[in-house]
Deep mutational scan, measured.
Amino acid sequence: MATGGRRGAAAAPLLVAVAALLLGAAGHLYPGEVCPGMDIRNNLTRLHELENCSVIEGHLQILLMFKTRPEDFRDLSFPKLIMITDYLLLFRVYGLESLKDLFPNLTVIRGSRLFFNYALVIFEMVHLKELGLYNLMNITRGSVRIEKNNELCYLATIDWSRILDSVEDNYIVLNKDDNEECGDICPGTAKGKTNCPATVINGQFVERCWTHSHCQKVCPTICKSHGCTAEGLCCHSECLGNCSQPDDPTKCVACRNFYLDGRCVETCPPPYYHFQDWRCVNFSFCQDLHHKCKNSRRQGCHQYVIHNNKCIPECPSGYTMNSSNLLCTPCLGPCPKVCHLLEGEKTIDSVTSAQELRGCTVINGSLIINIRGGNNLAAELEANLGLIEEISGYLKIRRSYALVSLSFFRKLRLIRGETLEIGNYSFYALDNQNLRQLWDWSKHNLTITQGKLFFHYNPKLCLSEIHKMEEVSGTKGRQERNDIALKTNGDQASCENELLKFSYIRTSFDKI
């Protein structure tokens, strides 16, 4: 039985969820670079991206490699990797027998973001014989899940209580170790020597080791999670996991709180800001991140802002960003909400898709409305799209047979046209069989910064309504002859009103 693990408890099935942008060198404390989270699957090609990484700022997932063999891993080693800020997950990587050479110096898994409450997941690794993470000293947050690894031993010899604050939620089941077939031998045991430290858990006094050649490092209890030197002297209180010299914040392997210019500090002093819960960055760093993602459509890219001495992905609820200094300031009234469309555009074809934009005031991208039916549609669209004030790209209304009016965009005031449909149009209306009105132009103002209007096959939309939009939106004169079809717009509506004058002759039985 794995020490510190839980057996036999019912657990939810383990679901495996399925960018080499360097964020800056980590400095003297770390020998390499800070790398983003990685999802490495199918083959070993991307694994080489770990070569210079000291910190993975995010998670590391290595999974679904069915053609790899043990010899493929023999020359692979990433000794610079010290810390993973989120979680480490391995799933069905064939041929991998140990992690001792792959990650010989991995010391800390912070667990800032977890995989279903777990910071370390080893699942269905069919050839893994031992973990071998002999320098792993601290899992700051989260638990361990090690399950269905039929060859995995050296679990009962690990004292997880020396690595985690609590072992109650560890789930370590259905491994070879369960069948008591392992016969784990710690260093020196074969020669009758006791080389590794022994600890007591559940009444068992057991030597602690990761492999037959690597003991588990056990520091004096007084050192807590700070770690200790090879001689057993406690590291500085700002260290986490390990250090090369005692009581020196510049000799830590990793930091308990924050890293700044080669030393570990309790908090980031001005003019620095907390970033990702582990390091200090200056304003320029946060500003660069903001600008890199301002026009990016890459998933996970955030326009970072500053709030409460932190550089964070977005302002919290009730705050909006001051564009001059990136500071989050309290909103006066309802907060603006910028919604970034991942692929640059979004099609609204149902109430469900409209709900995804609920509360958005600025759309960074283009909207395509293609709704053919739905219950209580006008009210639903207004509830979900009615706060949109600005669209950076274009607005396209296409084959939306259920629409009679666009009044559900009740606050839309600006279409920038930074991206144009077919390279020309910022407003595009095609084949809307029941569209009769755009907006009530006596109450609604709309500016279209650039781009043209396109109207074709809107049989109940009168040309007068379209011409009014040209005047109000500032697009009059931009359109070419064929942009607004004269014969297919309003051709099934009563669009022309003329005053009919009647004269009559009164007659009676005795007068003409």
Rank of each mutant, 00 (worst) to 15 (best):
H302Q: 14
E57T: 05
T194D: 14
P271K: 08
T199E: 05
Q299Y: 08
N135R: 06
I62V: 12
R141L: 08
I158V: 06
I40Q: 01
I158N: 05
I185P: 09
C228D: 05
H48D: 14
D159G: 10
I82H: 07
E314L: 08
N175I: 14
L155Q: 07
K148M: 10
G132V: 01
P197K: 05
I185T: 05
R145H: 08
D247P: 01
H236Q: 04
L240G: 13
R297W: 10
V55Q: 03
Y171G: 15
I122H: 01
M321W: 14
D277C: 02
R263Y: 01
N175A: 14
K100S: 12
F91H: 04
E57N: 05
Q204R: 04
P246F: 13
C209F: 03
L63S: 14
T189C: 09
R263H: 02
G95W: 04
P70T: 09
T189H: 05
E124N: 07
L50I: 09
N150W: 05
N135A: 09
S143E: 07
S225D: 04
H307W: 11
A190G: 08
L260M: 02
E181T: 05
S54K: 14
W210C: 03
L50E: 00
P197E: 06
M65C: 04
N135P: 03
C280Y: 01
L114Q: 10
S244N: 10
L240R: 05
G111I: 00
E207W: 14
L260Q: 01
A119H: 00
L76V: 14
L44W: 10
K217F: 14
Y319H: 09
D165R: 08
T329N: 06
N42G: 08
H212P: 13
L96H: 00
G203H: 05
G58A: 01
T229Y: 02
T140H: 07
F205P: 12
L64T: 05
I56H: 02
T189R: 08
V34P: 13
G58L: 00
H302I: 10
C252L: 00
G232H: 11
N257R: 05
K217V: 09
L76K: 09
R298A: 06
L136W: 00
L152K: 01
P36I: 11
D178S: 07
I84Q: 00
T194I: 15
F78T: 02
N257V: 01
H307G: 05
P104V: 01
N257K: 05
C243W: 00
N179M: 09
N117D: 04
G300Q: 05
V173G: 04
D184I: 03
R263W: 03
H212D: 15
R263K: 06
R162Q: 14
N195V: 10
G333A: 12
N43H: 06
N42E: 05
L106R: 01
R46Q: 06
P271R: 10
M137C: 15
C255R: 00
C215E: 10
N202L: 04
G132M: 01
C53M: 01
K224R: 06
L60V: 08
P31Y: 02
A230S: 09
N117R: 12
Q245S: 07
T107E: 05
P330M: 10
L155A: 12
T199K: 07
G95L: 02
L152G: 01
D159K: 05
I122R: 00
S161L: 07
M65S: 08
K217E: 09
P271T: 13
S166V: 07
K193A: 04
H236Y: 03
S244F: 15
S317F: 08
I163S: 01
Y134N: 15
I109P: 00
K129T: 13
K129D: 06
N242A: 11
K224Q: 12
H290Y: 10
P70K: 08
H226N: 10
R263A: 02
L76Q: 02
N52S: 07
V305L: 07
L128A: 03
E97Q: 12
L152S: 02
A198D: 03
D169H: 12
L114G: 03
F91C: 02
K80R: 10
M137Y: 04
V144Y: 01
L128I: 08
V108W: 09
Y259R: 04
Y171W: 11
N308H: 13
L120N: 00
C153I: 01
W278R: 02
C264W: 01
Q276F: 13
C243D: 01
E49Y: 03
P79S: 06
V206F: 14
D248M: 07
R162T: 06
Q303S: 04
N170A: 10
G37P: 11
F115P: 02
S296Q: 13
I139R: 01
F116L: 04
V144F: 02
K191Y: 06
L155D: 13
R145S: 07
W210N: 07
G192Q: 07
L128H: 00
R69M: 13
P220S: 04
P269H: 11
A254V: 04
S324R: 09
N43F: 06
E130A: 10
R279L: 09
Y171M: 08
T329E: 14
L63P: 00
C335G: 03
L29P: 02
G333L: 07
H226E: 08
Y259S: 03
P270L: 08
H226Q: 05
N150Q: 11
N43A: 11
P270R: 05
Y118K: 02
H236T: 03
C335T: 04
S213V: 06
R279F: 15
L332Q: 04
D165Q: 09
Y118M: 09
V126T: 02
C243L: 00
N43L: 07
Q204D: 14
R145G: 02
N138L: 12
N242I: 12
M137G: 11
H28S: 07
D178N: 15
N179V: 14
L96T: 15
K129Q: 14
T267R: 03
W160Y: 05
D178K: 10
S213G: 13
I62L: 05
V265S: 04
I56K: 00
R74P: 00
L47P: 03
D75M: 09
L99C: 06
H212C: 03
P220D: 07
T157S: 06
I109L: 05
C228A: 02
V305R: 10
H290P: 06
T68Q: 13
C328W: 00
S143T: 09
C280T: 00
Q299N: 05
N105S: 08
L174K: 06
T329V: 10
I40F: 14
L47V: 05
L164A: 10
T329F: 08
N202G: 13
G183Y: 05
N43C: 01
C328E: 01
M321P: 15
E71F: 13
G227A: 09
Q216C: 02
G300P: 12
G111W: 00
F285C: 03
A198K: 05
R141F: 03
V218N: 09
T329S: 04
T45L: 09
T320N: 11
T199S: 06
P36H: 04
E314S: 05
F91L: 07
L128E: 01
P269M: 04
Q216P: 02
G333R: 08
E207P: 06
C235N: 01
I62K: 00
V200I: 08
L90R: 00
C301L: 12
C280E: 00
V55N: 00
L332V: 15
R297S: 12
C328P: 01
H214F: 12
M65V: 03
P270F: 06
H214L: 09
I82R: 11
K251A: 02
G142F: 00
L29V: 04
R256F: 12
G203Q: 10
I201E: 12
N117H: 03
H212L: 12
D277W: 06
G188V: 11
C328R: 01
T199Q: 09
L114F: 01
L326C: 03
G300R: 07
S143M: 14
G188W: 15
S77D: 02
G142Q: 00
L326N: 08
P220R: 06
A254L: 14
P334H: 02
P313K: 11
L106P: 01
N325Q: 11
K191F: 12
G203T: 13
G227D: 10
L240F: 03
G37Y: 08
L136F: 05
H290C: 01
G32F: 12
H59D: 05
S324T: 05
G188L: 15
R69Q: 06
G203A: 14
N179P: 05
L88V: 11
G227L: 09
V305N: 07
H226R: 07
F115R: 04
I40G: 00
C286L: 03
K193G: 11
L131N: 02
R113G: 12
V34M: 14
E57I: 06
N43K: 10
P79W: 04
N202P: 08
D248N: 04
R297G: 09
F275Q: 01
C243M: 00
G262Y: 02
V173M: 04
L120Y: 01
L155Y: 09
R110E: 04
E71W: 02
L136V: 03
V281S: 01
L106K: 00
A156M: 07
